[in-house]
Amino acid sequence: MISPNSRRAVVDRAFHGLFLLCTLISTLTVGMIAIYIFAEGFPALKEVGLLDFVTGTEWVPPVYFGILPMIAGTAFASLGAVAIGVPMGLLTAIFLAEIAPRRLALFLRTAIELLAGIPSVIYGFFGLVVIVPAIEQIFNVPSGSTLLAGIVVLAIMILPTMVTLSETSLRAVPPGYREASLAMGATQVYTIFHVVLPGARSGIMTAVILSVARAVGETMAIIMVMGNAPALAESLLEPARTLTANIALEMAYASGLHSSALYATGVVLLVFIMVLNAAMLYVNRKRGG
């Protein structure tokens, strides 16, 4: 007979092993993806040269491989989306956490969380049939498939991330802070901006960074609304291509050096995401310390 104690120890150890195994699998996957992309992208980086690859403005496969237009496309589309989506998301989060009655907040929050579950191809379709024609009408341009259309679609897509995470961190601010501020005669709006927001600062920063990461990584919706021209856009009303779109558009057809150049595009994208994650670690460390 096994004693209950030793049986418990065996079960315990088995679970420890299981936890470790799961962790190893997910960690190894990240490592393998990085190694694979670097290995496949290396021939193109070597042939073209890293500097020429990231500063070149001509993308004419299989002759010229310069991805500056795509780097700019990703940067402008994400920054534009953040410029619209972050303030809007933050103000929504404040409304839900601080102002709206409990029932209304519950209803609105459910609606916003639903937004997070909509597949990106549906956002793309919405952009194509609503936002693109609207831009054509409002700005009187021949084609609405522009950087601006991408920005608007991305801004909507990052709202759920921004709202949910900001609201959680606003709610985590101890009620005593608000009470103290109100007791000293401050108005509610003054309390929100001078007491609650600073208290939730690091959580909101995390929300902003995750929103940027979401915008940088989005592919399908962007391909459908941004026109995808591999040229530097001179205004918001011109088509542009992002790094993700560059890979997704050409992967199926590419071979040889062209294919390697797309992996190298992936390397640049990976670096983008790594920088964002590093920024998030930095923000979170300050909160912990």
Binding site: E58, V60, V63, Y64, N228, A231, E238, P239, R241, A248
Partner: peptide
């Protein structure tokens, strides 16, 4: 180099 002369600003559809 022999390259495509299609305008770079043309929209690319997948």
């Amino acid at each position: 180099n022999i390259v495509s002369t299609i305008a770079r600003t043309a929209q690319v559809a997948p």
